[in-house]
Design a protein around this nucleic acid. Structure first.
Lengths: 348, 348
DNA sequence: TGTGGGGGCTCAAGCGCTTTAGTTTCGGCG
DNA sequence: CGCCGAAACTAAAGCGCTTGAGCCCCCACA
């Protein structure tokens, strides 16, 4: 049997009512801080509840109209792409922190793609499992905001851009465009004219935003040797692309990688080809992590506080659940942490 | 208002009953595959349910005795230690995969320490939120199994050793001892006699097991220059310990790190001190990851399938929930992937 | 002294589902 | 032809909580 010897019955409001000598309704009023009971009764009920170790049954609460006291988070990534970067765990940890204060649970699911993700939302909604969701990795043509809106499921999009706003959904985003511009600024100042951006998955909103910004910056300055190449974020693709571009006739003098893993793999690939970092080629990683600190040369990286990102998103969702209006909030622009992988462009 | 324009009412069994022209009970019987309805009615009901897009309300189910259709997983780690290794996301992803097949949700929480973790279990239990839990990072004096047993909450311990069995709890574990023994075997064969093990957090069951085994192996062979040093898994501590031991009078010729991050940091530290890897000192990382492949020299690492680990654990929990007996199952011994960081000990 | 009006509580219904105890309708057998 | 029993289905209670309606009592006011 799964349940053990003394299955330690959970106390219910009925138990409290009996012990406190009042009706169940009175207990409900007392415990939920609403009028209808005297202060003295309220105190007594509270005391009994505490001493009995009572906690409201979420199931019962959910059933009688209150929410499910749970928010959902689904990650649509092929399983093997998972866990290469530390971003998500940090994010979830931050989300968690805020939710826990309000005794909200976090229902977590990993799926293969956005289609499955939509199915999960449908299921959660129909099963009455969550009160709201956090949506990660917004795409350029994203079916999720529409669906969530249709279901009336409060949601906040993490990493979306403000123009992609969908009525009813909140958005928390980092200014990728600004960050990209400042990185290009910095590299340009160091004399770099040929820059390759080893981007992440095509179709992700932030990938496209970075690519657009890079192109715009290049045009503004009349640079021609600037391009973006999309990848799947893996170390192997990162290395492969690096090899390819460095072997070209006019190899770039600076590389911008959309995550830490590719950056490290890229440095290794460059080194193998006889390019030294940063003498021959500078490298910037978009995500900072222990990884960037550990390797030699240390990688200059765009650092952001993923935990804070998560906390902000969670707070927005709470606001939405409390009936607040949908908002768009921006978290601080990622900050470039300079290490040894960037330097002046070699004269050509 | 949180809910939007057409809050798209969820269909209930009552709706199905009406449409199918039967009672609610008949619907329940039909949908749950239990006797009491004819096959033709069952089919009709099923069809109606499907076409209405009906899904059982977990709240209602939970309330009427069924489980909450959810299992819990809490990670007790200081927030900053999170996300350094990819192990957990992989693990969770594996767990997830198995649970999803059965439409079970995964409630996830991150806390600071084991005390908080116990509080979370208490809360989940009292709130009727989960049917069972997965317990990670078992410790040497662990309050959790006792608590879970007391609450009668089905649980499987991930990474526990069989001898620490607690009645009622299942255990899924990897044979750390065997792995350690084989690593030492290998290093010994390469001529290594002074080996230092840069271990993880003291108090974790698997840390202690590895330490014990290393000591036993050393004694068996009469080696004296063998020791374990515990750390907090961070790159900084890993580097610090590496520097300390390499500066000693008789520095080790082989280092075993309990995770990938420390191993990489250790290699960097060793290189700084003028030790070349693997010529002067061999390095083995306990956890394999992209990280170990990327860096140069590539790190020899103990590789295990974390996803499979998670799947196995989840399957055990399901078995427990189905009323099966508590079991202890072993996942395959981690396999040593040889890369460039290990080699013959230099003659002394 | 009568009356209106709160405050303080209780009653009971209802949320969506399961489940036990009926009730009806057959078909089969003596 | 009548009776029994099984199969098919319905009625209703119950899970733990919320909530609107109603009840009682006491105080203030006229």
């Amino acid at each position: 049997m799964a349940a053990k010897r003394s299955p330690a019955r959970r106390p219910t409001m009925k138990d409290i009512a009996r012990r406190a000598g009042v009706s169940e309704s009175a207990v409900s009023f007392a415990l939920n801080g609403r009028p209808g009971v005297s202060e003295v009764t309220r105190d007594r009920v509270r005391r009994v509840a505490e001493q009995l170790g009572w906690r409201p049954s979420t199931a019962a609460r959910a059933l009688s109209g209150e929410g499910a006291a749970t928010v959902g988070f689904v990650l649509a990534r092929p399983a093997d792409t998972l866990g290469v970067d530390s971003f998500f765990l940090q994010l979830v940890s931050g989300i968690q922190e805020v939710l826990a204060e309000r005794h909200l649970g976090l229902l977590f699911q990993v799926v293969e793609d956005v289609t499955d993700e939509c199915a999960v939302y449908r299921g959660w909604w129909a099963e009455h499992r969550v009160d709201g969701v956090l949506v990660a990795d917004p795409r350029t043509a994203d079916p999720r905001p529409g669906l969530l809106d249709e279901l009336g499921l409060p949601a906040v999009v993490i990493g979306g851009a403000p123009d992609e706003r969908h009525p009813g959904l909140s958005t928390v985003w980092a200014d990728d465009a600004g960050a990209m511009a400042s990185v290009v600024d910095g590299l340009y100042a160091l004399g770099h004219r040929r820059i390759v951006h080893i981007a992440g998955l095509p179709g992700l909103a932030h990938t496209e935003r970075r690519i657009r910004t890079l192109r715009a910056e290049a045009e503004r300055r009349g640079l021609t040797g600037v391009e973006s190449v999309t990848t799947d974020y893996s170390d192997t693709e990162g290395a492969a692309v690096t090899r390819r571009v460095l072997r070209s006739a006019a190899p770039p003098t600076a590389l911008i990688y959309d995550n830490d893993v590719m950056a490290v793999a890229g440095v290794a690939a460059a080194t193998e080809l006889g390019f030294s970092v940063p003498a021959d080629v500078s490298v910037v990683a978009w995500e900072d992590s222990a990884l960037c600190r550990i390797v030699t040369p240390g990688l200059s990286a765009l650092s952001r506080d993923s935990g804070e990102f998560g906390r902000t998103a969670a707070r927005e969702l709470l606001a939405l659940l409390d009936g607040g209006p949908a908002r768009t909030v921006r978290v601080p622009v990622p900050r470039l942490v300079e290490r040894e992988s960037t330097g002046a462009a070699r004269e050509r």
